[in-house]
């Protein structure tokens, strides 16, 4: 897919809360042994005064700084998340108001499990590409939920990214093309009024993550007539470390291409934020002319794949705001009891 007007990313920003809980601490509490082959090193934990609205505000501030545009020029604020502070009331209006965007703007919260943010990004490319808007902001941000003791608890992290779409001539990375691939696959879901999601264990792998990521990625590569060797960087949705590395090998990419954007070992799976914050880590490093391939995944299930080419503007724009690695490195380790308090895992009445 490609819009009629050439479009790209004019700004980007990341956010990760400061708290981390080591996966070995979770294993100590639930398995009695710390070294039980945990899937990641540590995951990020939101503080008691943080949620998707506050985290989105900071990521969006960083994106606006890099874009260098007036907040009132942003024509859409779309927050992709599966951890909305309110079940009914948009998070996006809080974000827009805090940034001084609007009131003449579109605002909505998007939902497609872990690809809610990239679904919003596809729409942002379409709206700017059609000429309806000059700039549109898409965010992927989550404070992911994991049932105490469940396999998901080891990885369900917090964080994400904001991306501002504009015309190609103003962009730090130009979109070459994108694709979307979805099927009805019940690998992971959370029912109304439930605190924690259910998942299909091994069913989340081959028929879910790998089927969609591999098909979307291969389709986009074929459409563009490209091979993995044509890219300097690749970013996949990262529910852990193993899945994106396996997808890397299956498609013919190398470990060197994927490691810059693979953050899940340090911050966990940030769900709707995972692939997009990986992309921001790559944008912090990539040089003009480099090509970047991104493929997201959301349970339920589907993938969005994007191909970007970096422009000369990246060198100066990246210096205007805090890097993704600054947020990753900010690290206050907490124990399970503190984590349980911050994440409201104790039933008080």
């Amino acid at each position: 897919m490609k819009p009629t007007r050439e479009v790209g990313l004019v700004g980007y920003g990341a956010y990760v809360p400061r708290f981390r809980i080591p996966a070995t601490e979770i294993a100590r509490v639930w398995d009695g042994i710390e070294d039980n082959g945990v899937p990641i090193e540590s995951k990020s934990v939101p503080g008691p005064d943080e949620d998707v609205a506050t985290m989105s505000i900071e990521a969006a501030q960083n994106a606006l700084l890099r874009a260098g545009i007036a907040p009132t020029d942003v024509g859409a604020v779309w927050v992709g998340t599966e951890s909305k502070p309110y079940a009914v009331k948009p998070t996006s209006t809080i974000v827009a108001e805090a940034l001084g965007i609007g009131p003449f703007t579109q605002a909505a919260d998007w939902e497609f499990a872990c690809k809610a943010g990239s679904e919003a990004l596809q729409a942002a490319f379409g709206m700017v590409g059609s000429g309806m808007l000059s700039y549109a902001m898409a965010l992927g941000m989550d404070t992911a939920q994991g049932r105490p003791g469940d396999a998901l608890e080891y990885t369900a992290g917090a964080g994400g990214a904001a991306l501002i779409v504009g015309l190609a001539e103003e962009s730090l990375a130009v979109l070459e093309a994108s694709t979307s691939y979805v099927t009805d696959t019940p690998d992971f879901f959370r029912r109304q009024h439930q605190h924690y999601p259910q998942h299909g264990h091994r069913f989340t792998g081959k028929p879910a993550y790998f089927h969609h990521v591999l098909n979307a990625s291969q389709n986009l590569l074929d459409e563009l007539g490209q091979t993995p060797a044509d890219y300097e960087y690749v970013v996949f949705h990262q529910p852990n470390v193993k899945f994106p590395l396996k997808a890397t090998r299956a498609l013919g990419f190398s470990r060197d291409q994927v490691m810059t954007g693979l953050l899940s070992n340090r911050i966990g799976n940030t769900y709707a934020g995972a692939a997009l914050i990986g992309l921001t880590a790559v944008l912090d490093e990539a040089k003009p002319g480099d090509k970047v391939f991104v493929c997201t995944f959301g349970s339920g299930a589907g993938s969005d794949a994007f191909s970007f080419v970096m422009t000369d503007m990246i060198e100066e724009r990246r210096t205007r705001a805090r890097s993704t690695q600054m947020y990753v490195e900010r690290n206050t380790t907490i124990d399970y009891a503190t984590y349980g308090r911050y994440r409201k895992k104790f039933v008080m009445n």
Binding site: D49, D51, A53, T54, E58, Y86, M326
Partner: peptide, 24 residues
């Protein structure tokens, strides 16, 4: 920074507003 200031119970309004953190 803009953070949660308070909430009116689990089913009530969430109030957001300014707080300050150490300058990075």
């Amino acid at each position: 920074v803009t953070r949660r200031l308070r909430q009116y119970g689990e089913d009530g309004l969430i109030v957001y507003g300014y707080k300050f953190r150490p300058a990075w």
